Computed example of a mutant assay.
Amino acid sequence: MALPVFDDKMSDADMDRMVENATAAAGFLKAISHEGRLMILCHLVSGEKSVTELEDLLSARQAAVSQQLSRLRLEGLVVPRRDGKTIYYRLADDRPKRMLETVYELFCK
């Protein structure tokens, strides 16, 4: 997909869409800008995990993990599922996985 070009021919509707897209992208980037949230997404790439599993994997307290999951949920990046008293999380779609692949290419090779 080609990047949009700002020029005199851009309609107001196109400019409004660009602003909406920029706002959504900024929210997404803010959500993944925290190392704890980024690590949660990395763990969820391999499949659904309970909050307790994430606590163990991250060596973090339940309150901290829940706070980060709340932000990821707010941005629509993860989806919860309750089974009795246990809450499980999974990626909402493939955006986080694609983003992690890009980050890996940029910083980890």
Rank of each mutant, 00 (worst) to 15 (best):
S46V: 12
A24T: 13
K85I: 02
E55W: 03
G47M: 12
I87Q: 05
R73V: 02
L57C: 02
S66G: 14
R98Y: 07
F6I: 08
A25T: 08
S70R: 14
L44P: 01
L77N: 00
L77K: 03
G84V: 02
L72P: 01
P4S: 01
K30Q: 14
F107W: 04
E55H: 05
G76S: 00
N21H: 13
T52A: 14
L57Q: 06
M18Q: 14
M1E: 15
D56V: 13
E53P: 04
M39E: 07
R81T: 08
A13V: 09
T52M: 11
L77E: 01
L3F: 13
R61M: 10
M39Q: 07
V65L: 09
L72K: 01
F107G: 06
L29K: 03
L74R: 06
S66D: 11
L57A: 04
G84M: 01
L106V: 10
D93F: 08
L91W: 04
D12N: 10
S66A: 14
G27Q: 10
M39P: 04
T86W: 03
A92P: 00
L77M: 08
R71N: 12
I40F: 02
P4Y: 04
I32D: 00
R71V: 15
L106S: 08
I87P: 04
G76Y: 00
A92H: 01
K97N: 13
L74T: 12
P80L: 01
I32T: 05
S50L: 04
T23H: 11
E101N: 11
L58T: 00
R90H: 07
R90C: 08
R95L: 09
R82F: 02
D16H: 14
R61I: 06
Q62V: 14
D56C: 09
D12V: 14
S11Y: 08
A13Q: 11
V19R: 11
R17F: 12
I32Y: 03
Q68W: 11
S59R: 08
V78R: 00
L74A: 10
L69H: 03
E101S: 12
A31P: 04
L100I: 09
R82E: 10
L69G: 03
S33Q: 07
H43G: 05
R82T: 09
L91E: 06
M18T: 11
T102C: 02
M39Y: 07
H34E: 15
C108Y: 10
R90M: 08
Y104L: 11
D93P: 03
